[in-house]
Nucleic acid binder design. Structure first.
Length: 292
DNA sequence: TGCAGTGTTGCTTC
DNA sequence: CGAAGCAACACTGC
């Protein structure tokens, strides 16, 4: 669920809230999520370090710590981070970070990991499906870690020019829908924003990149940037699990044009009806008339 | 009850 | 080699 706009929103919020705070302890009920070492080693390594900076690469959250270490965290499908106050414990299991997070939103019951902070608050990782991962690496050389090394360019980065996009595209074949979601081609785009981008571009998700003319490719490049920026402006999309750091939903789900709109009338002037098909095992939503 | 959904990796087939 | 298909991961909700 969290795609680039959601991850960036979380990162921006963390830079406004947890910087300078010290980690006093870590708790988990799902040790399998810790990838670089055992949870016990991770815990020992991390206690006493301060948060220096939050960053994003693709859908990874990077938390730079004092002493040259960085946490590399991926929320995968259902993960989201919450920042709040320690409130309650039930049956050996921490179930939330504040009355608001728990009582008003059952999605936040699934807290699997908690970082306890020096100001008495905590940073919690809620992850219903338990696919999320956490690892600790040296900050220097982090970009050479296997998971980061294979990634394509950042679509909102300065170097993501049309020239660069065209060059990358010229080496590729295959369906646009799958290609946009391929993090080795371009990062940050998942099922929701790929549907929205293709709807905005007006091309069919089954079209192949090598089939697009220059005008279409230019429009696609523009739409990628436009839609992701729009998502960021609306603080992300909360179809299901995604919440921001304080437990609130994003707003983009209220303005999606294609994703989850099956059967509805397309809002374009020349639009038809939103259809849904399977591509690469994922659902793709598109207008059967204006997306060609 | 069974299966869709959702990000990513890794395996297999073509 | 690259593209495509599929399983795996774990769980909810319909």
């Amino acid at each position: 669920m969290p795609e680039l706009p959601e991850v960036q929103t979380t990162v921006n919020d963390m830079n406004r809230s947890i910087i300078g705070l010290k980690i006093t302890d870590v708790w988990t009920d799902w040790k399998k999520a810790f990838k670089s070492s055992s949870f016990e080693k991770f815990r020992k390594d991390i206690i006493g370090r301060k948060f220096i900076k939050a960053r994003r690469r693709a859908k990874f959250i990077i938390l730079d710590l004092s002493g040259g270490k960085s946490i590399l965290l991926h929320q995968r499908m259902s993960g989201h981070l919450l920042y709040g106050k320690w409130e309650e414990e039930k049956k050996d299991k921490w179930i939330g970070v504040s009355p608001k997070h728990v009582a008003e939103d059952p999605k936040n019951r699934f807290v699997r990991h908690i970082f306890f902070l020096s100001n008495g608050k905590m940073l919690a990782f809620s992850d219903l499906r338990r696919f999320g991962t956490i690892a600790l690496h040296n900050t220097i050389g982090l970009e050479d870690v296997k998971e980061l090394k294979v990634l394509g360019p950042e679509p909102l980065g300065r170097s993501f020019t049309f020239k660069k996009f065209k060059e990358l595209s010229s080496k590729k074949k295959g369906r646009l829908k799958s290609l946009l979601m391929d993090p080795t081609f371009i990062v940050g785009i998942g099922n929701i924003y790929s549907d929205e981008i293709l709807w905005d571009t007006g091309v069919h998700p089954l079209r192949s990149v090598d089939d697009l003319d220059d005008k279409e490719l230019k429009k696609l490049h523009k739409s990628i940037i436009l839609i992701l920026k729009r998502g960021l402006k609306h603080r992300g999309t909360s179809i299901d699990d995604y919440r921001d750091l304080t437990g609130d939903k994003g707003n983009y789900q209220n303005i999606t044009k294609a994703y989850h709109q099956t059967g509805k009338k397309c809002s374009k002037k020349d639009g038809g009806t939103i259809k849904r098909i399977k591509i690469g095992g994922r659902s793709a939503h598109f207008c059967n008339k204006h997306q060609k």
